[in-house]
């Protein structure tokens, strides 16, 4: 299981990558693995807003549903429509092609609340 060092994580199993004033959000390798084959994903509209710790979408496997919780607050500036048509990408490349939304941060401080790769990995092991 991979935990890229350059990302930040949430306890709800989302990852965040900083790209200037915008952050990219997706779900972790651990999340896709526990869900199993992803068959459906629901994402917000471009131009909409997301709020930290509030649901912004849904991922579904054949027999499970999982809410996506936003790690940050801000405006959605881009949505990865490609994964809506090919949700299997979430299983194949969770940290790359399967990014979900790009958010323009309202409050950069929120990033400080996120976990580092080591912290997240440790959290998962405890959860097991």
């Amino acid at each position: 299981m991979e935990f890229p060092k350059d990302l930040k994580y949430t306890k709800e199993h989302e990852w965040v990558r900083e790209e200037g004033s915008v952050v990219v959000v997706g779900i972790t390798d651990y999340a896709q693995d526990s869900l199993g084959d992803v068959v459906y994903v629901e994402l917000p509209q471009e131009g909409g807003s997301v709020t930290k710790d509030e649901p912004f979408g849904v991922v579904e496997s054949v027999k499970a549903v999982s809410d996506l919780y936003s790690p940050v607050t801000g405006n959605v500036v881009e949505v990865n429509d490609a994964i809506i048509d090919s949700p299997e990408v979430i299983n194949d490349d969770p940290y790359g092609d399967a990014w979900m939304i790009k958010v323009e941060l309202s409050n950069a401080e929120e990033l400080n609340d996120l976990l580092s790769a080591e912290e997240y990995q440790k959290y998962i092991e405890e959860e097991k």
Binding site: V62, K63, A64, V65
Partner: peptide, 10 residues
């Protein structure tokens, strides 16, 4: 199929 709409999952 599409069982995630249903009570036993949601």
């Amino acid at each position: 199929t599409l069982a995630t709409r249903e009570q036993h999952i949601r």
